[in-house]
Amino acid sequence: MMSLMKPDMQMDVSFYKVEEIRHLTDETFSLKLPRARFAFKAGQHISLGIVGGNQSREYSIYSGENDENLELLIKEVDNGYFTPRLRKLKAGSMVEVHGPFGKFGMEPELAANGKFVFIASGTGIAPFRSIVHTYPGIDYRIIHGVRYSKEAYDREEYAADRYTLCTSRDKGGNYNGRLTGYLKSCTFDPETHFDLCGNSNMIFDALEILKDKGFDRDQIHCEVYF
């Protein structure tokens, strides 16, 4: 009785040839895959495997819903298992994509009318670039926390007055110090929607700050990487 299955129910597995690798810093790069018929909602993630390998990891989609490529933003982690292997991929290497997954993301009606603050640590900026690419007219601010200013991945794509870089290890940011230090000094419209993405310690601290400012937990959405 296959008819009971909705077509979008099955676990999607697709194989792709890496089209291009963009080196953004010594450790961080983007993988560009052909988008082909892959459909997703900005903010969602996929699970990525290397063909012939036996492990996979989750990655937020870095490109917009209608961009030409399916792009991922990846940081090589010291002593990590998977990222050093990803790093060795070349244009033409084959990867395996499962998904898309997750409820973190943007609904079109909300994007048209809402006010957003996106708070990201490191590569946690990935889903927000996807959202900004998909909804260029969206009313947003990005607060991006990194260690060094060179980690402001593709910052030129965001309007200068919408993007705030917080650097904890050099003085190249708009704010020199941790993202959470900057967040404490901010004021936001009471109707703001907050989306937080990155490591769980940053998310925990940012949540506490936002709750102290009187925002309801239901206004805040989180995507935890580790």
Binding site: L4, K6, M9, Q10, M11, D12, E58, F101, G102
Partner: peptide, 24 residues
């Protein structure tokens, strides 16, 4: 389920979230 709670094996063994049609 595709929540991928970090401790849970279920998404790997039961696959993505799928809903049975209302009429059914």
């Amino acid at each position: 389920c595709d929540n991928f709670c970090t401790f849970c094996i279920i998404p790997m063994v039961r696959g993505m979230a799928a809903s049975r049609p209302v009429a059914d």
